[in-house]
C-alpha cells in the first residue's frame, strides 16, 4: 500500500548569515506497509522515527529537504496527493494530549458530524458527555481513545501511530494495541512508531528496526523469538539488550544527525566491521523472508 524507498531527509540550517549546511537526519530508509498488517518501526530516541511519519504525511517544516521515493498504491506520493489523502485515507494518531487544541471541545475536534462522533465514541466506549469536555478534562486513557477516534473519523487506509502508548498503564496500552489490531484486521494498514520492542513483538506483524535514521532490518515479529533468526548485528544487539534476553548493553552510542558516518551507520559499533563497511552504505538485501542492510548478514 505504502512503499518508502531510499528516503533521505535533511534540514537546511544557516550558521550566521551565509554559511549554509544541510543536516542529514534520515538516510537510505526503506520501509513498506502491506494491507491488513501492523508494521512496527522500532528504534531508540533520536533515530528519526517521528520525522518519518511527518515525511509520509507531508507536514515537515519548510526547511526540510526530502530525497528518495514514496509510493502510494504504486503512485508517487507527492505534495498534491498527500494533501488529498491527509485526514481521509492517510491518518495520524499523535502522541499526546498536546495534539489537541486546548480551547476546543473534543467532540468538534474529532469530526464536524455529530453522528460520526457518536459512532466512534460508541466503538471506543466513551460516553457521549465526553464530547463536550475540553482536552485538559480528559484522563490519559480517554485522551488515547479520543486521539485514535480522531484519526479514524476519515476511514483511513493507512494509519500512522506515533508512539501511541507511553504514559499508559500496561492494561491501557494493551487496549490501545487491540484497537490497532482491529483497524489492521479490517483491511487497513498500521504503521506503528515505537521504542517499545516488547510491545512491537507482541502486537505487530513485522518490525522495521530503525537506527540513526535508517532501517537496518525488516523482520517478521516471530523472528524476535531467537537471536539466530535475526539478520542484522544491531537487531541482534537489540535482542540481547532486552531484559528477558540478558539485558546486555553494547558499547558506544548512536551517531547523531550531522555526524553520520559515510558507510554503514552501525559500522563504528559493529564487531563484524571490515574496511568495506566503512566505505559505502550497504544495499538492502532479502534474506530468509526479511530485508537487511548488511554485507555479512546471514
Amino acid at each position: 500500500m505504502l512503499d518508502v524507498k531510499n528516503l533521505s531527509l535533511s534540514f537546511r540550517m544557516y550558521d550566521g548569515a551565509f554559511r549554509r549546511r544541510d543536516l542529514k537526519v534520515i538516510a537510505n530508509l526503506n520501509v513498506s506497509v502491506r494491507e491488513g498488517e501492523i508494521l512496527a518501526v522500532a528504534g531508540s530516541s533520536g533515530s528519526g522515527k517521528s520525522l518519518l511519519a511527518h515525511a509520509i504525511l507531508g507536514v515537515l517544516p519548510k526547511n526540510a529537504i526530502l530525497e528518495g521515493e514514496m509510493l502510494w498504491f504504486g503512485k508517487p506520493l507527492d505534495a498534491a496527493l498527500q494533501k488529498k489523502l491527509r485526514g481521509h485515507q492517510l491518518a495520524l494518531v499523535p502522541q499526546s494530549v498536546t495534539y489537541l487544541d486546548p480551547l476546543m471541545r473534543v467532540g468538534r475536534q474529532i469530526s464536524k458530524e455529530k453522528e460520526t462522533v457518536k459512532e466512534l465514541f460508541g466503538r471506543y466506549h466513551l460516553q457521549d458527555e465526553v464530547a463536550r469536555r475540553f482536552p485538559h478534562e480528559l484522563s490519559g486513557g480517554m485522551t488515547r481513545r479520543i486521539l485514535i477516534s480522531a484519526a479514524l473519523a476519515g476511514e483511513p487506509k493507512v494509519v500512522i501511530a506515533d508512539e501511541p502508548t507511553p504514559g499508559l498503564s500496561p492494561h491501557l496500552a494493551e487496549h490501545a494495541m487491540k484497537h490497532f489490531r482491529e483497524i489492521a484486521d479490517s483491511g487497513s494498514a498500521v504503521l506503528l512508531i515505537t521504542h517499545d520492542i516488547d510491545l512491537a513483538v507482541r502486537f505487530a506483524d513485522r518490525i522495521a528496526v530503525f537506527y540513526a535514521g535508517t532501517t537496518v532490518e525488516t523482520a517478521n515479529a516471530s523472528d524476535f523469538a531467537d537471536e539466530s533468526l535475526l539478520r542484522h548485528p544491531y537487531s541482534r544487539a537489540l535482542w540481547r539488550a532486552m531484559p528477558q534476553n540478558g539485558f546486555s548493553p553494547t558499547d558506544g552510542t548512536q551517531p547523531y544527525a550531522g555526524s553520520l558516518p559515510a558507510g554503514c551507520l552501525y559500522a563504528p559499533r559493529c564487531a563484524m566491521r571490515t574496511p568495506e563497511c566503512v566505505s559505502a552504505p550497504p544495499e538492502p538485501r532479502d534474506i530468509r523472508g526479511g530485508e537487511v542492510s548488511c554485507l555479512y548478514a546471514t
Binding site: H54, L57, V59, G87, H88, L92, D101, A150
Partner: peptide, 23 residues
C-alpha cells in the same frame, strides 16, 4: 503540536487560523 495534527488531518493554514488560531 495541535496545529501539526490539524495539518495532518488536511487543514490548511487559513483553516487553522480560523479554527484554532483566533480562538
Amino acid at each position: 503540536d495541535f496545529a501539526l495534527f490539524a495539518r495532518a488531518r488536511g487543514e490548511s493554514d487559513t483553516k487553522i487560523l480560523f479554527r484554532h488560531g483566533i480562538r
